[in-house]
Amino acid sequence: MKACVVVFPGSNCDRDVIHSLSTRVKANVSALWYEEHKLPQDTDLVVLPGGFSYGDYLRCGAMAATAPILNAIKGYAEGGGLVLGICNGFQILTEARLLPGALLANKNLKFICRQCAVRAERTDTPFTSNLQTGQVLKMPIAHHEGLYFLPPNDLKQILANKQVVFRYCNNDGTIDDKSNPNGSVDNIAGVINKGGNVLGLMPHPERASEKILGSEDGGLIWDSIASWLKKGGRC
């Protein structure tokens, strides 16, 4: 797998994603500066990492969404290329309108860092192809703006299109208010575009890809991408 991780001013999970991808699935990963206009040739996966691009000033992800590299990423996504946005990367993808919705301040107005459980709602995406439907993954969240919001009509639409890939849940997979850490609409933790090749999620798979870190469940997402690419899957 040839992956690149985009570095914006203020990104702070870029090195973590690079470490995780290169150790877990032996990916050939490079860092890509936000001012670039092109992606490296034969890129299999683009990751927008977590962090505080532009200090989260104005709105999280808003300024990063105007960076030159986003044009290249839009073109790449239109061609079916795989794009994954984690945390701040998810916020950037919604601001760039590559994904529906917006991420607002957590319901309790505080930053929340803790281990969370999310349920895989789809297994027919490149990012979840190795999972079982309903499988519960444990991954940490760490954000201040993670409340996923969509106007009611738009919500109906993404539900109809089955664009919800992950929902916050209890350890046994049930979904209720108690398991919703930030007040997200419908417990949504991750959504995919209609084409099924651009995924955004708030939990951090790269922080849950090694046993020593308390969970390896995030690694299943890297494994899914790797085996999907190996099979020559196309979106």
């Binding site: 607002l104 301040a105 107005l109 409340l147 919001f149 007040g183």
Partner: peptide, 11 residues
């Protein structure tokens, strides 16, 4: 209207 204003609600 209709967008949850968490800050407003807290205040």
């Amino acid at each position: 209207d209709g967008v949850l204003d968490t800050q407003g609600k807290a205040v």
